[in-house]
Design a protein around this nucleic acid. Sequence first.
DNA 1: CAAGTATATACGCATATACTCATACAATGT
DNA 2: ACATTGTATGAGTATATGCGTATATACTTG
Lengths: 113, 113
Amino acid sequence: MARQLPLNDQALEIVARRFAVLAEPMRLRLIQALFDGEKNVTALVGLTGGMQANVSRHLQTLTTAHILARRKEGLQVFYRIADPTIPKLCELVCGSLGKSLARQAGHLAAGGG
Amino acid sequence: MARQLPLNDQALEIVARRFAVLAEPMRLRLIQALFDGEKNVTALVGLTGGMQANVSRHLQTLTTAHILARRKEGLQVFYRIADPTIPKLCELVCGSLGKSLARQAGHLAAGGG
DNA sequence: CAAGTATATACGCATATACTCATACAATGT
DNA sequence: ACATTGTATGAGTATATGCGTATATACTTG
């Protein structure tokens, strides 16, 4: 897949895991919330509307996958996007979906806008 | 995410679903097998080493997600990659992983060569 | 040390889904 | 109509994982 070379079983599982990490709405929400800079957990809880425990768990999942990075400052922990390909990935998927989304969902943008 | 615009809940679920479809090694195997052109189910069963029923189900999942397309010819059904962003997606993910994969997995390419 | 705040984790439940087996469906030939 | 070949699907089981509640850990202050 890297340049269309076939991947072995272990590499396939790693790639699949990568996609799986991105396959949760809450995690995508967190990624979105971090597009404009790092935020601490409490802020992310407020922005996403999730439970603190759940948000924390998802942040750990994203960090373990090297998609996010942590920075501890006193009591707080700030998360940021660590993988520069993530925005591109999301754009690519959204662009590909945009065509069919128009039929399925009506609008892509948030209800507010 | 499309150009960094926040997505609403429904759009997030659709994007997440998209990633989820790509989050299975067998489905990635099938996608890889189709990079060099369309193949029928029996050929894909042989190439992936999966059970026919399982391969068929994964092909349906990929087709429903508009990642693959079907073409029926007599008894056989030929599948092909329908979404041109798929190869780019895979390259992007593999490229991003390549850096860390070198430490984790050793090799990215298949054992067969 | 005690109290308070911010974040992480353990546990249990509910649900989703991948897998296999058996079988149904579709198309072709005799 | 029947047999054969290729593909799809239903049922049952095992596993993975998201979520909420409760609790633990880390850090700061007094």
